[in-house]
């Protein structure tokens, strides 16, 4: 390679590496601000500001969704596996909002620890399945849960004092 070409190649490599480093360091420094939402664990640990507009996100806990019979007021719990947060929302929810699915809520955290949301968005995952396949998978899960529950009842029965006596 001719020397002047080599030098220009070095310039190209230099540009790419330096911008890569600069942007890498910047996004590392700003990593908390780039996150779209706080997790319930972060809220529980006091990392999220109160009385200020923020977003929180997590999985909507099964059987936690409650809607008032005479208004659009609703409450539900979101969880990230280790902590849960109660969210209060008044309005229409997106079609894909469901229990056991992820959601992101915009609003503010009150002093009582309840999150009052002005907007709730549904976050869907990257999996796509035809309805029949999804039904079959759900049935398999239900069946497994049913057998496990039956086994638990059996073992419980064995562990009861009457049974051991």
């Amino acid at each position: 390679m001719k020397p002047e070409r080599k030098q220009r190649l070095l310039v190209v490599v230099f540009i790419v590496v330096v911008t890569g480093l600069v942007v890498g360091l910047l996004s590392y420094a700003l990593r908390e601000n780039i996150n779209l939402f706080y997790t319930p664990s972060q809220v529980a640990a006091g990392e999220a500001p109160t009385h200020q507009q923020i977003r929180v996100g997590g999985m909507v806990v099964a059987d936690s969704f409650e809607r008032a019979s005479d208004s659009l007021d609703s409450t539900f719990l979101v969880s990230d596996g280790s902590a849960t947060l109660l969210i209060r929302y008044s309005g229409i929810l997106p079609d894909l909002f469901a229990e056991d699915e992820a959601a992101v809520a915009t609003g503010s955290l009150g002093a009582d620890g309840v999150f009052v949301a002005q907007q709730v968005l549904a976050k869907h995952d990257e999996e796509y399945t035809p309805p029949e396949v999804a039904d079959a998978m759900q049935q398999a899960i239900d069946k497994k849960a049913a057998t496990e529950a039956a086994q638990q009842v059996e073992s419980k029965a064995l562990n009861t004092p009457e049974a051991t006596y």
Binding site: I34, P94, L121
Partner: peptide, 12 residues
């Protein structure tokens, strides 16, 4: 819009 509930969000 039909899935998330919004046209636009400033996520990464």
């Amino acid at each position: 819009k039909p899935t998330w509930g919004t046209y636009w969000i400033w996520d990464a």
